[in-house]
Write a protein that binds this DNA or RNA. Sequence first.
RNA 1: GCGGUUAUGGUGAAGUGGUUAACACACCGGAUUGUGGUUCCGGCAUGCGUGGGUUCGAUCCCCACUAACCGCCCCA
Length: 419
Amino acid sequence: MIQIPRGTYDVLPEDAFKWQKIEAAAREICARFNYKELRTPLFESTALFQRGVGDTTDIVQKEMYSFKDRGGRELTLRPEGTASIVRAYVENKLYGDPNQPQKLYYIGPMFRYERPQAGRNRQFTQFGCEALGSADPSIDAEVISLAMTFYQTLGLKKLKLVLNSLGDPESRKAHRDALIAHFKPSIGEFCDDCQQRLEKNPLRILDCKADHNHPLMATAPSIIDYLNDASRDYFNKVKAILDEMGIDYELDPTLVRGLDYYNHTTFEIMGASQGAITTLMGGGRYNGLVSELGGPETPGIGFALSIERLLLALEVEGISLNSDPALDGFVVAIGEAAEQKTPVLLNRLRLAGLTADKDYIGRKVKGQFKQADRDKAKFVVVIGDEELEQEKAVVKNMADGSQEAVAFKDLTDYLKEKI
RNA sequence: GCGGUUAUGGUGAAGUGGUUAACACACCGGAUUGUGGUUCCGGCAUGCGUGGGUUCGAUCCCCACUAACCGCCCCA
């Protein structure tokens, strides 16, 4: 048997309605916040992600699904959405559109070659928003509020917003240098991973679990102390707006996002989860990215969240998105003559706008009723020899068990009135 | 990429180196020659993830592969 590729999964009909609800909620909330959908291809030039996401990131170094097409082009299945959105923004010259900032969203599959786990797949689905063209702190708060509103609309309660600022590039560099200076003399006392991190990403040392208790951890320089005046001022404004909006957050100076393009505000929303993976959403500001990808100097901010992890969180919190799809009618045929007639009657019900079905696998009468019951049919239309002769069907109300005879020609009107 | 656990029907699962692989749910049929949700009865894995090996014989022992889950790394 040919199996589904590792790290992918099928969304079966019983789950697909949940996806529909979630996507509908996302679109509805984006409309409220005035974000417009932008659809980009599932694959892009590999160079886009190398430049956009960053050559040193894990995503680019070991997680990309890259391939060469028949024309020799180097392509990659998108591992995230922001680079594509920015590419489209630049390529379509959306910076010239009078509507600024451009407030955009996307929903779709992303691909990363990783070891699968609950909440981590090789093909997964992200809903993300990006606001390009504004460096106003209110847009930082807006994007965060949008994500929180989305989760709350779906019923999630156990949410924790974590906030940090990486500052502008100048602040970032000053802090990085300070961290390296702080840890370097004693780096031999740290785990292998941290020794690797020292040059690559010293900020990561701070949330190492193995070295959690090392005395140098507590005294490590905090990014907050290295923000220059402009960066600090910006961050304070973002926090002030969130405060006034009544959005709770926790400051975490160790919150560092994995992609190279982030600066200033970074944030995550953590949720309830069974396993080690609790990050539901991640995002931040990326003021240098548009120019890095060939556009004009343009500020940007955005977030991405995983539908898969959202579904897990909903499950952990015991929230059901179950809908209760019910059929209006189910047509039961008794005997061969009736079996000839039922498709026509059934079709008539459907054309009239009713949801209806019948048996297709030769079940006995009892079996047909059981199927009607499974489909939660409100009415069963029974047709046998006698009914054919009189051109009347026996219509049974499944809720109370009552039945009455209804002429074939009156059937749709009868059902539409009763439903 | 590294480490650990696991893999029996549509589902949840029991089980043993040797003739018929428990049980429950679901499903189909019968009791009720044309009526569901209750009850009773019957049926339902030529097969125990895939491929090798050991053995007279393997679902059960060994190896490899594949996949799922958990942890690390990292992230959504």
